[in-house]
Design a protein around this nucleic acid. Structure first.
Lengths: 127, 127
DNA sequence: CCCTCATCTGAAGACCTGTTCATATGTACA
DNA sequence: TGTACATATGAACAGGTCTTCAGATGAGGG
């Protein structure tokens, strides 16, 4: 509960209240990490493709329009974070979406994006 | 709707079916973009702090333990994407979480992270 | 066995992102 | 008006991430 920044606080009560409710650094990092895995269009496409069921690497490459190497790299990352899981059959590898939490996030995000599509006139200070 | 990658497709039906359901490139990019904004621990902390209501920049800096410059930069980004909005009062700027969609994502993510916290021994998943 | 095919991996380069330092803007108040 | 303060901005540097290329692994078929 050390402060280190309390010098110029305006609303001290709100600040400590919010600090109380703030998740631990570990939780925040963990959550940011998950969002980071969903933040790449190609990875996102892979996961969306897997929403309907398992697919092998070459089909994932075909669906998402990436090289199989890129797909493999992406799946490796997702696998390391237990977001997808692999089933092997001969020389094929079938991947499925394993993390229900991520599935929920995807559902929420996609549902809203379809509605909000037109409402994104951003592009302000960056490009 | 040409394929361009259909050479090595295994399950052609599944592939075209999934391709049908795949959101447009714009939607995917847009969604990945939103996830990207949530993928930074400091930005995430800012947004979590704003879940309870508006706060000024210096208080946000105090709550999240960042420099005010860093906070201002982060808020600028979030503002450009209409995720937060600013209310000015004198020389203070009070920011609030403006995008209900993002609020929902945060709620979902944080709820699950609190439960899943212990279950993240990220390793390479193979058997 | 040897060759092919599906997938995986490592290394390297280009690209993007976040932080910091210095400075600018603009409001309040003496 | 001039100083103090809250916030905003720009440029630059450091570190990370994604893609690609080349080669490795391991299963299946002749």
């Amino acid at each position: 509960m050390v402060d280190g920044c309390a010098v110029k606080v305006v609303d001290a009560d709100r600040v400590s209240a919010v600090r109380e409710r703030m998740p631990s650094a570990g939780d925040v990092t963990d959550t940011a990490d998950v969002f980071g895995l969903l933040a790449d269009p190609n990875r996102l496409r892979l996961l969306v493709a897997l929403l309907d069921g398992e697919l092998c690497v070459c089909d994932l490459a075909a669906v998402t329009g990436q090289s199989e190497s890129a797909v493999s790299h992406a799946l490796r990352l997702l696998r390391a974070h237990r977001i997808v899981a692999a089933r092997r059959s001969g020389r094929m590898a079938y991947y499925r979406l394993e993390d229900p939490h991520v599935r929920l996030l995807l559902d929420v995000a996609l549902a809203h994006t379809e509605h909000t599509e037109a409402i994104h006139p951003e592009r302000d200070g960056r490009s």
